[in-house]
């Protein structure tokens, strides 16, 4: 998606760092095994977070060793396939596909060419994923369609536009029982927060190209960082409150690190403009 959802490394315990990395690598492997060689391209931090959330709390952390997709000579610890990873993998394919379709429609026939080519490549994977999660597929399609309609009419309500993406992400977790309610609340506000962070990040670019931007539509072309930040913080607070009510077993500390430290720092970076440098960084540049 966007890569906004990251842990804050200095405060991670080693075991939580290993857990994060193995989940990330496990998701990569799961994508490759389910959807072929180009699918790991879709790997990102946001869906790693989703996989961590979806994991059954009783299930411990027992990594296996597997070959790295980027460098097959290396063997790394990674989480073996599990329902949580599979769901996260299916959903990242679906979301990537619809975002590509969106790009094809938004751009002209020439500028949209890369997106078109990519979506052609991804088509078989998407069809497989859509068969596996038909409900999520439908929700993503509807929510993105709703979002582009709101964008076309220049909707001035921040909440209404963010709501479409929030509901999209909300549907990524099964809505059953208490756990389902907790996840729904958490993911709703995560989606809202991601959407707003992305809108703030694009503010300058959209202003230059004259595109619609929800932050500009709500607060004027210069935006209002104080107000926007407060409303994003309110979503973070709701996420924290929801997180405390769920049982996440051995993944609790890692999830808390992401929600209480990682997201606020990313938010700060988006507002002061340093995010641009951070988001491009490679993830695991270590030689272990």
């Amino acid at each position: 998606m966007f890569g906004y959802v990251r842990p804050f490394r200095p405060e991670l315990k080693c075991k939580d760092f290993d857990l994060y990395r193995a989940t990330y690598c496990g998701l990569c492997r799961c994508l490759r095994r389910r959807y072929g060689l180009i699918a790991p391209m879709l790997l990102n931090f946001d869906f790693t977070f989703l996989a961590l959330l979806l994991w059954e709390p009783e299930e411990g952390f027992t990594p296996c060793r597997g070959r790295c997709h980027a460098n097959p000579l290396r063997k790394l610890p990674m989480c073996p396939d599990s329902p949580a990873l599979e769901l996260a993998a299916d959903e990242s394919v679906i979301l990537a596909w619809w975002k590509l379709r969106d790009g094809v429609q938004d751009e002209g026939p020439i500028k949209g060419l890369p997106a078109r080519a990519l979506s052609l490549l991804l088509r078989p994977a998407y069809r497989k994923a859509a068969r596996r999660c038909p409900t999520f597929d439908g929700t993503v399609r509807d929510c993105l369609a709703e979002l582009s309609a709101l964008e076309r009419e220049g909707c001035p309500s921040l909440d209404r536009t963010a709501d479409t993406f929030a509901r999209l992400l909300q549907s990524a977790a099964p809505r059953e029982g208490e756990r389902g309610r907790v996840l729904a609340q958490l993911l709703y506000h995560l989606g809202r927060w991601i959407y707003l962070a992305d809108a703030r990040d694009d503010l300058e670019e959209d202003r230059q190209s004259g595109r619609y931007n929800p932050v500009a539509a709500r607060y004027g072309p210069a935006g209002d960082d104080g107000a926007l930040r407060l409303t994003m913080d309110n979503s973070l607070a709701q996420m924290g409150a929801a997180l405390q009510l769920g049982d996440f077993g051995c993944r609790t500390a890692l999830l808390e690190n992401i929600v209480y430290l990682g997201l606020p720092l990313v938010e700060r970076a988006v507002f002061d403009g340093t995010w641009y440098h951070i988001k491009k960084q490679k993830i695991w540049r270590n030689d272990t």
């Binding site: 990251r6 842990p7 804050f8 490394r9 990313v266 340093t274 960084q281 993830i283 540049r285």
Partner: peptide, 13 residues
């Protein structure tokens, strides 16, 4: 700034 560089990105671990 230092912390931001540590957001699971910069440097080695």
């Amino acid at each position: 700034m230092m912390c931001l560089n540590c957001l699971c990105g910069g440097g080695r671990c």
